[in-house]
Amino acid sequence: MEQTFSEVISSIPWGIVAPLLVIQAILLIVALVDWFRIERTNGPKWVWLIIILFFNILGPILYFLIGRRNNG
């Protein structure tokens, strides 16, 4: 049962998982860039930074759907 960290890492099929991680990262980066450039959000701006950073996948999507002022 005891496994070293590197064993766990090497057991992950990176060829399959990596593309999904990459587009997830793109989503995160786009959300962050937009967060920096936008002047005001719906609700406090710093809350949205936390949501984007700490809620995987869902965070950036929620930011674009709700946080962003679509007529700003």
Binding site: L20, I23, Q24, L27, V30, A31, I57, I61, F64, R68
Partner: peptide
């Protein structure tokens, strides 16, 4: 300009691909 052409396709890709994987 509001990045919809980036995040909407990515969202759909992740939604569709995550469950089978």
């Amino acid at each position: 300009r509001n990045f919809k052409w980036l995040w909407v396709p990515i969202t759909f890709i992740l939604l569709a691909a995550l469950d089978p994987v």
